[in-house]
């Protein structure tokens, strides 16, 4: 796993912790959404946390490709 992916997954785990939930097994192929217990606001929270972690917010900078998996998300920061 890349260092960026590790950091992204760590931040996603923090989102679970913040709602008092235990994260499932997460990998680059995990589909972001209800399948892994994430609501739409959780995704917004992930983006806020990743901005703190990486210092930039690709979503604020305009066009982003379709993001389905954790791997897709990680690529935006890597």
């Amino acid at each position: 796993m890349s260092a960026t992916l590790d950091r992204v997954i760590d931040q996603i785990k923090n989102v679970y912790a913040n709602k008092g939930a235990t994260p499932p097994a997460l990998s680059s192929e995990s589909v972001l959404g209800p399948e892994i217990g994430l609501e739409s606001l959780d995704l917004a929270e992930i983006v806020v946390r990743l901005e703190e972690e990486f210092g930039n917010d690709p979503f604020a900078e305009g066009m982003v490709p379709n993001i389905r998996t954790i791997g897709d998300l990680s690529n935006l920061y890597g």
Partner: peptide, 20 residues
């Protein structure tokens, strides 16, 4: 952890602090 648990139990998803 205690704040997260209290907020998860007593607040709606939009109300929950996402940055602590």
């Amino acid at each position: 952890k205690a704040v997260a648990a209290a907020c998860a139990g007593r607040l709606t998803p939009p109300q929950r602090p996402r940055k602590l």
